[in-house]
Amino acid sequence: MSSEWPLFEVFIRGQHGLSHRHVGSLHAPDAEMALKNARDVYTRRNEGVSIWVVESARITASSPGDKGPLYAPSESKIYRHPTFYDIPDDVEAM
């Protein structure tokens, strides 16, 4: 028979306080084994304090063609960035 184990994406929190970050993929029969495999494969050098795994097929991704509509609008909203505001240097703690 042999159907291939599903592919999982692995996310690791490198240090306390940081977000989880995508580090790579692996195969496992289910999510629980994927978590163990992730520990063995992706934390061999003390890389993490917390691991998430998610089956790759469950991820919904934007398609590259949407890049314009999805991200371009935010480019014009420069007022969301702190440097937009001109505050005199002598105003402290800003």
């Binding site: 028979m1 042999s2 159907s3 184990w5 029969p29 289910d30 084994m33």
Partner: peptide, 11 residues
């Protein structure tokens, strides 16, 4: 093969 299949079947 039997190991991969066995663990798949269990999952």
């Amino acid at each position: 093969a039997w190991v991969r299949d066995g663990l798949s079947a269990h999952a």
